[in-house]
Computed example of a mutant assay.
Amino acid sequence: MKLKTALIASAISVLTFNMVYSQAGATTPVFTPEQEARIGEIAAEYMRAHPDLLIQMSETLQQEQQEKQTRELKSAALAQQARIVKDNTIPVWGPADSPVMVVEFFDYQCIWCSRLAPELEKVMKANTNVRYYFMEWPVFGSRWPSSLLAAKTGLQVWKEKGADAYLKYHNGIYGTGMNEGRLTKEVIEKVSDNVQFSQKTIDSINVTLTKINDIATTAGLSGTPGIIVMPVNGATVNNTTVFAGMTEAENIQQAIKTAQGNK
């Protein structure tokens, strides 16, 4: 069956070449019109008799498309690395000389981000030598005002109190279990210990949110959550991992190993 499949595929390829060759204006096609028609009949008959071949072809196409998308996401992420690393308005936790960086794009009202939060906590506890970047990306802000307020408050906590206070706030908001519009202003104020905004900090925070949105979309992400794991130096498509969606701690851990040069 594999041999027949290969022969059919070869015939179709040659037939396609013949059609293109003819359209290009060549005077001597590989097959006559009658032969082309017969090859098409044979291929159709074979596929009807072996529908599993169509499934295999579909799976192969899907895999190729997924691999192409993954390569594109990695390349786009690599192009944004310098912007992320150099921007001191983005909350970060972990040693400055870390060889590996993990970048999380999230929304406090995203249910999948809520499910990812404890997974990332596990990773952070097991990898304190990694530098973590928290990209406040309130994609649900137009639907749920608390999404935008929580993001702005997080950035205010970062500005006023630094990394440890920010991480406490970040995990604290997710720890409430209030997502998909259930988070309230009162809860945000309580978790943040009532941080206050000023016009100056609000303007700066809005600029940061705009930059994060641009980084996320330019990196090819279409929503939250998103995770990028790469070496701080020498990052390539081979040692960079992008999770465009929910993932688990063991997958992030493996991505960190890959970034470290381990398999």
Rank of each mutant, 00 (worst) to 15 (best):
V20H: 00
L3V: 14
V195I: 05
W137K: 08
M101P: 03
T218S: 10
S204V: 15
A9I: 08
F106K: 05
S98V: 04
S22L: 15
S204Y: 12
V232N: 09
T208F: 07
T128G: 07
R83A: 15
N238F: 10
Q254V: 10
Y166W: 09
E248H: 12
R83G: 09
A96Q: 10
Y174S: 01
P91E: 05
S114D: 07
K152D: 09
T60A: 15
P231G: 13
M230L: 15
T27E: 09
A163L: 09
D52V: 12
L61P: 00
A37M: 01
P145E: 02
S204C: 08
N251P: 00
L120H: 06
G220S: 06
I228P: 03
M47S: 11
T217G: 00
L149N: 01
S142D: 11
Q23L: 15
M57L: 11
T247S: 14
E59A: 13
P99S: 11
L149W: 01
W144Q: 03
V242C: 08
L148Y: 03
E160N: 14
K211D: 13
A9E: 14
P118S: 01
I215M: 06
M101S: 09
M178V: 02
P99F: 10
D203E: 15
F31G: 04
N239P: 02
E121P: 09
K211Y: 08
P29L: 04
M57N: 11
V187R: 03
N179Q: 13
V92A: 13
I227D: 05
K152E: 15
Q156D: 09
N239T: 00
M1I: 13
I42N: 06
T224W: 09
Q69E: 12
F140Y: 12
R131E: 11
A126G: 11
K257T: 07
N262P: 00
V157I: 13
L167S: 09
E67G: 03
K68A: 15
T5F: 12
Q260C: 00
G154N: 02
A259E: 06
L7D: 11
A82S: 15
N262D: 12
L53V: 15
Q23H: 11
F134Q: 08
L120K: 08
A117C: 02
K190Q: 03
K122F: 07
Y174F: 15
T176R: 00
V139P: 00
A76L: 14
E67K: 14
W137N: 12
R83S: 15
E180I: 04
Q23P: 00
T201P: 08
S22V: 13
V130D: 11
G172I: 07
T236I: 02
T240G: 14
W158F: 07
V191T: 02
D203I: 11
I188D: 03
A77G: 04
I39W: 04
A77P: 03
E41M: 07
N18Y: 03
R131Y: 11
I202S: 10
T240R: 14
A163N: 06
S75R: 13
E36H: 05
G245W: 08
G40T: 02
I252M: 07
C113N: 04
E72C: 00
K185N: 07
